[in-house]
Design a protein around this nucleic acid. Structure first.
Lengths: 332, 332
DNA sequence: CGGCATTGGTAAAGCGTTTTACCAAAGGCG
DNA sequence: CGCCTTTGGTAAAACGCTTTACCAATGCCG
């Protein structure tokens, strides 16, 4: 690895000159001959500036930590993809964290967050204990952006139009004629869960029976269990809103297990689309939101938010209804 | 952000002492009283060592670059998940790269790879130009691990038992009685594509008609197009091996579009399992391989490989046949 | 009481950049 | 010829940490 000093010696100049040439410092006055000689040597020796030294000097790492829950979940994959694209534009690299993986608290990632190794932190669907650790590590020193769910009152929260999406999904069922509409919600207490519940209530009525709500993490097995619970409670339920596609897949399994035909006996609509939603056993009708836009917005925000800033932002994008085959008017 | 020097001043000792206490340097002889006083101040001031400085001093970043193609692809998601877990154990953080995102060549990630900002590089090569750029950036200075596909003759290649998996898949069809078995392969020229083709040939015969092979990237649309091509060429084909699940989903779409029933008129088997494979329109029979183990192995390897080392390694894991509903004996 | 070992530390270099402040030499002008 | 300006740079500090080599004071032994 060539260093600035080596280049400088070879070119017979000081390392300051080399640095300033490499960085296109316009305030440097240097002869055209020297400049091109230095440039040639830089290229020839394949010089690349040492990022640790740059980072130490400038207190900027060019890196952003992005902590999700379960990388393997395609929904998060989409968000990450959008984040990647924006990070590229902002010339930042993304340090990936998975809060589902044990011991995040004293992981290298946490060390980096606490030790100035990242310029910002994006925390998705905060709510777990691990999130707390990570959040604390940031300790008011770097901008923190919370995705989809707030963490107490701190940080910069970015959301999708969750209430609107849930309202749209529920309204679709209502318009088809359904009146007993269950709700397979996401994890209890998260901001977007609360917002979507509000959207659901806007349609079914504020005085609705709360036993129509059941919570589930975004895993198919959990969604299945939750759906079964709902079937048991309300055998006369004719439709269901799922706040998560993966949980909706679980609901589909539950319906099949109970011999309930979808959509004839039970209509299912879900929030968020994934690529395979139309290839499922019953192609899922969904309300789609631009997940990659959310990732993009997160990076944008983290690049210009102040440390310890707090605000709330809803991505400017309209949910769209994607009609497939999992909903129809009630048959009984 | 507290620094070592600040702590030292407050404790009335030199920063060397603080550093050595923080790092549990056993060769340091210090009074118990001083030690606990320093420790108390460290905690109180919430000290976290500056990672840039550590990195500069030690020439180790504690970071590994992991470059995949398309984070949103669930197959890569699984690999990443395994990598995350192992990275946690090795106390390393993962810098995520997506080679599908434009301009990787002069991205921050590439700068970090070239500038000592990562301790190793894991590259899931797909024959893209971007791969080349990234690979070159590493420039013999850090260990490079290639996943699933080699890059010329350099680097440390890690694979799954691809030939065996393809053989197993094809054999399953053969045993059911199929004799005209198409092959929807992955991108041409990649190591694992070649290996799987070998497995396929092992069963169908080395002298088989090459027009039974069609290549596709791991996208459903591409898989669909490729499958249609195959249908047109060989209307009498009764079974198909897909080297990628996502492409297999495309094949399913193609069959539906052509009114070909699966599995009665066409059996489909795929390599690699994903969580929703059993929830598809036709539940896919697959040969499963441990994707997360591959991710794990990659991290392990990159942590102990020499820079510029080269070798080839096959993950020690046996593919297993997962029977679902997309295969049956030929009906004609 | 002189010499030696132990205790409890310290000083300083060095990792590679960036940046501010400074400066010698040459040329131009009166 | 003396002074000023421009050209073409340079010197050195600072970022925060780690580590090697060194050392003063004290206690102990003979």
């Amino acid at each position: 690895m060539a260093t600035l000093a080596e280049i400088a010696k070879k070119a017979g100049v000081s390392s300051a000159v080399v640095s300033r040439i490499v960085n296109n410092d316009t305030s440097l006055r240097v002869s055209e001959e020297t400049r091109s000689r230095v440039k040639a040597i830089v290229r020839e020796m394949n010089y690349a500036p040492n990022v640790a030294a740059q980072s130490l000097r400038s207190s900027k790492s060019g890196t952003i930590a992005f902590v999700v829950h379960d990388v393997a979940n395609p929904v998060y994959g989409e968000i990450l993809r959008g984040a990647q694209e924006e990070a590229e534009r902002q010339n930042r690299a993304i340090l990936l964290g998975d809060a589902a993986v044990g011991g995040v608290s004293n992981s290298r990632l946490a060390q980096m967050i606490g030790g100035g190794g990242v310029d910002g932190l994006i925390l998705q669907a905060a709510g777990l204990q691990a999130d707390n650790m990570i959040f604390k590590a940031a300790d008011k020193n770097i901008p923190v952006v919370l995705l989809q769910s707030a963490f107490g009152t701190d940080g910069h929260l970015i959301q999708l139009p969750d209430t609107e999406a849930a309202r749209m999904a529920t309204q679709h069922l209502w318009d088809l004629g359904h009146r007993k509409i269950g709700c397979l919600a996401t994890t209890e207490g998260l901001t977007f869960t609360r917002d979507r519940l509000r959207g659901w209530r806007d349609v079914v009525g504020a005085d609705v029976d709360d036993s129509l709500i059941v919570f589930s993490s975004p895993l198919a097995v959990e969604g299945e269990a939750a759906a079964l619970k709902l079937f048991a409670r309300h055998p006369d339920m004719t439709a269901m809103v799922c706040f998560n596609v993966i949980a909706a897949v679980g609901a589909l399994r539950a319906a099949r297990a109970r011999g309930i035909s979808v959509p004839e006996e039970l209509s299912i609509i879900s929030i968020h689309d994934v690529k395979f939603a139309g290839d499922l056993w019953v192609p899922l009708t969904v309300v789609r939101m631009p997940l990659s836009t959310l990732g993009e917005a997160a990076i944008k925000a983290v690049c210009k938010t102040e440390p310890a800033g707090r605000m709330r932002e809803v991505v400017d994008a309209h949910p769209t209804l994607v009609l497939r085959a999992s909903t129809c008017p009630p048959q009984r």
